[in-house]
């Protein structure tokens, strides 16, 4: 027991010695800069996983002006509304003295009132275009208007003096551009009876214009949209009309070679029927005697029979004409 005790003492002595020597090892550095000491009294920061309710902070009161009562309460009953709402503006509940309600609610409940009602602000209103406002503005701009001239009251009357109709189109839209490509289109129309033709020119003109002529209404229509501007298109339409009109009066040399197979309609004058009829009428006639020619009504009946086809009326007419021409007594 005593031996073990002494051994323990020796060991402890040795450890204290080593500690002393280790201190001495760092002594010179320690003397120059004193080691910063950790303050023992500061606490660790606490991680607030479940924050405890802090002391209630009083919110600062924001000073607001008193809400002014709506302007409608101060409006006179007989006020000038056009001055109160002079131009287009989105709906404002305090300025409109109307008990408006708008919007969807559950069944049975009244629609929301006009205050703080977005439904009323979404739709464009016409509060600046009330009937008195329209009357006022129209009276102001009426001095720029002129009456329709007398003597041109009906369609037939103005058509005799102004046979040409020009249709143009304008667009007013809310696109990023104010231009609409359709606005360049120009339609010029007139009745064909307003132009003067001879037979050949009329036939040639109708061939030149083709689809632009409506046979039922006798209306000729030029629609032009190939140029970028309306003025150019209008000029081009008139140019087309003029060119076709003048071209139709030109007779080309090859037009004389039109044979009977090229004819569109049967003409009595240039056919075998005329020659045969003349031969029959002048049968056994003297050489010097005047040649008889078939009557115009007979020619017309033959043309009708071939152009319109054989029907009861045309055949009866033809029979009658033939009998009249050959002096066959009827019953």
């Amino acid at each position: 027991m005593a031996a073990s005790l002494t051994r323990f003492l020796e060991r402890s002595q040795r450890t204290t010695h080593a500690a002393l020597s280790s201190v001495r090892l760092f002594s010179n550095s320690n003397q120059q800069q004193p080691q910063p000491e950790v303050e023992d009294d500061e606490e660790f920061r606490v991680l607030n996983l479940r924050p405890v309710k802090q002391q209630f902070q009083r919110r600062r009161d924001i000073k607001r002006d008193d809400v002014t009562p709506p302007r409608t309460t101060r409006m006179a009953v007989d006020q000038d509304w056009t001055a109160a709402w002079p131009g287009p503006r989105s709906f404002h509940p305090a300025s409109v003295p109307l008990p408006l309600r708008q919007g969807f609610t559950e069944r049975g409940a009244a629609a929301p009132s006009k205050f703080a009602n977005a439904e009323l602000m979404k739709i464009p209103n016409f509060l600046h275009l009330t009937p008195p406002a329209i009357r006022q503005q129209c009276e102001a701009i009426k001095k720029f208007c002129t009456p329709w001239p007398k003597g041109l009251e009906t369609n037939a009357k103005w058509r005799t003096h102004f046979p040409l109709e020009v249709i143009t189109t304008d667009y007013c839209q809310s696109l990023p551009t104010v231009r609409n490509p359709e606005a360049r289109r120009v339609t010029v129309s007139l009745k064909l009876s307003d132009l003067k033709f001879d037979d050949h020119a009329r036939d040639k003109f109708l061939r030149l214009v083709g689809e632009r002529y409506n046979k039922e209404t006798d209306v000729l229509t030029f629609v032009t949209d190939r140029c970028p501007l309306r003025k150019q298109n209008y000029d081009y339409a008139l140019y087309l009309l003029t060119a076709c009109y003048h071209e139709s009066f030109i007779t080309e040399p090859w037009e004389a070679t039109k044979s009977e197979a090229d004819m569109e309609v049967y003409l009595f004058e240039r056919n075998q029927a005329k020659r045969s009829t003349e031969a029959i009428l002048n049968w056994n006639a003297a050489e010097n005697a005047q040649k008889k020619s078939p009557s115009a009504s007979y020619a017309q009946s033959v043309e009708q029979l071939i152009n319109e086809g054989e029907n009861e009326y045309n055949l009866a007419k033809y029979k009658e004409e033939v009998m009249k021409m050959l002096n066959v007594p009827t019953q």
Binding site: P88, L164, D170, S174
Partner: peptide, 18 residues
């Protein structure tokens, strides 16, 4: 013209024969 409305105008002009 109110917002959101587009307008298209077709005018038929009467003219004398050139």
């Amino acid at each position: 013209l109110p917002e959101g409305v587009a307008l298209q105008v077709s005018k038929t002009e009467l003219q004398q024969m050139p």
